[in-house]
């Protein structure tokens, strides 16, 4: 059943054989990356015919647990394989969206943006064109005596 998984309990490791035509090398790297904390990994074999991943558990575990790690690795391969396929499929539309976003920033709205920037640069922070700045004395000072020191 699991002809592509070989368990070596004595060495606390598992050998997984992968077909590179189904799972490309970058997918294998990504799946391997997930397991770096749990196990020591080594890649061997032929990148065109058969890639062998040697997973050695960092802690001593039994045969069943080794098998479980192996199957989890296969699951990760499928997960990243699917992700790669999807991202290749969406590649063109992603490029179009990105181009549109960049062109919008550099195109017609850029003039509005520049004029707004110019207006802002011309204004002084002391200017009060809408008359909303009220002096402290006027707002909180002693209105009877006209004394602002209180």
């Amino acid at each position: 059943m699991d002809k592509n998984i070989k368990i070596n309990e004595d060495e606390n490791c598992i050998l997984i054989s992968v077909n590179p035509e189904i799972y490309p090398l970058d997918v294998i790297y990504s799946a391997a990356y997930v397991f770096l904390e749990k196990a020591y990994l080594l890649l061997e074999g032929d990148p065109k015919k058969e890639i062998i991943i040697k997973l050695t558990a960092k802690e001593r575990i039994n045969k069943e647990e080794l098998k479980k790690i192996g199957k989890e690795f296969l699951n990760e391969l499928i997960s990243y394989g699917f992700y790669k396929k999807q991202s290749e499929k969406n590649n063109l539309i992603r490029q179009i969206i990105l181009q549109r976003v960049l062109l919008t920033g550099a195109g017609e709205n850029n003039d509005d943006c520049n004029s707004l920037m110019e207006e802002t640069e011309e204004e002084d922070y002391l200017d009060d064109p809408k008359g909303i700045a009220i002096p402290w004395e006027e707002k909180y000072g002693d209105k009877k005596n006209g004394n602002s020191d209180k």
Partner: peptide
């Protein structure tokens, strides 16, 4: 291997 992954 981690560096190889970041490379790809």
């Amino acid at each position: 291997l981690g560096l190889m992954k970041n490379h790809s």
